Simulated assay, not measured.
Amino acid sequence: MSNARGGRRSKGQRELLGTRAPVLLAEAARTKAAELGLNVNDYLATLIAQDTNMLEFAPRPADPTRLELPITAA
């Protein structure tokens, strides 16, 4: 899933959607996203994809077999 420069593959063209949710709802979204191994943006995009029956656009969770390497200060 990486590109020639070593980063992750592009998710394609994106557009910003913004919302201001009640604090408790925002906290619940952050918690659920973390439980699923997603960031909040990917979690919300997944919900939209499910609700609109456009699952081909739902972000996929990271591959759990790949480890994140620590970055040390130079």
Rank of each mutant, 00 (worst) to 15 (best):
E15R: 15
I71V: 14
L36E: 15
L44A: 11
G7F: 13
L44Y: 02
V40W: 05
L24W: 01
P70E: 10
G6H: 06
A33M: 02
A28E: 08
P22R: 03
Q13F: 10
S10R: 13
M1F: 04
D42G: 14
I71S: 11
N39I: 04
P22G: 06
A73R: 11
S2I: 14
D42H: 12
Q50W: 03
E35T: 07
G12F: 08
A49F: 03
E27Y: 03
E68V: 02
A4F: 10
Q13S: 13
A26E: 09
P61R: 11
A33C: 08
T72I: 14
T46F: 02
I48R: 03
A45G: 09
N41L: 00
L38K: 04
T72S: 11
T72P: 00
A28F: 03
A28K: 07
A29V: 13
L24M: 06
Y43R: 04
P61S: 03
S10W: 01
A26Y: 08
A29Q: 01
L44Q: 00
K11L: 09
A33P: 01
N53V: 10
A4T: 11
A45S: 12
Q13W: 07
I48P: 02
P64R: 05
Q50S: 07
V40K: 12
A28M: 10
A28R: 12
R14E: 13
P70Q: 11
V23L: 02
P70L: 08
V40E: 12
L36P: 06
A74G: 11
Q13T: 15
R20G: 00
